[in-house]
Amino acid sequence: MRKTGLYLYSKFERFWHWTQMLLVTLMVITGFEVHGSFKLLGYENSVRIHSASAWTFMGLALLSIFWMFVTRQYVNFIPSRANLKEQINYYMSGIFKGEVHPIRKSLFNKLNPLQKLVYFGLLIFIFPVQIFTGIAYMYYHYPQNPIDAKGFEIAVYTHTLGAFMVVAFIIVHVYMITTGNTIATNLRAMISGYEKEEDHEPKVENKENQENNIVNESNEA
């Protein structure tokens, strides 16, 4: 395979994504075992793995925040109204008619407006809430001492609610993988970093982007 196509996901991003995917899956499984929903790994193992995964997750999160600001990739996650309607229309009807994606991806615009909205919510709201309540869960077991926080429940219930949100996200997210130009486009891109050329209708502006990307890649290497 030649390095053709659009380079979207750097090595770090791919590593971040898949590690996060494994950790989140692990935390969902162990978390719901601790919640009492089923028995699988054993309660004690679940507690220990859940906590350990949480620490790795937080370490990874710090690393990714650092990376995002150094590479300015955080701009990808800032929600924007532009093309939001088009994107919704595409998923509601265009996709069934075989129309082309309304958004052209590029290194600094690799997410569509809906993705931006959802990922932003995940990164800015759900994850921090899970981290905050999770730390409370680990270290503030007995909220009467020293400060009376009126019980452990608030943290626990919020954490549980967040966990359900994450599961719902996973379901939709896994499905959305298949909505690229071909069924495998998105998955392949997250593995190799490239969105393949044959998946695109070549356009001049895209080629420019592509060149930029390759330059960027060699810089990084």
Binding site: K11, R14, F15, H17, W18, T19, M21, L22, L23, L26, N45, R48, I49, S51, A52, S53, W55, T56, L60, M190, I191
Partner: peptide, 18 residues
């Protein structure tokens, strides 16, 4: 990048976690 390294990280997490 996409498979072995993430699995290693998760393996170490579980290994030291338990």
């Amino acid at each position: 990048i996409a498979l072995l390294l993430p699995m290693l990280v998760v393996f170490l997490t579980i290994y030291f976690g338990i």
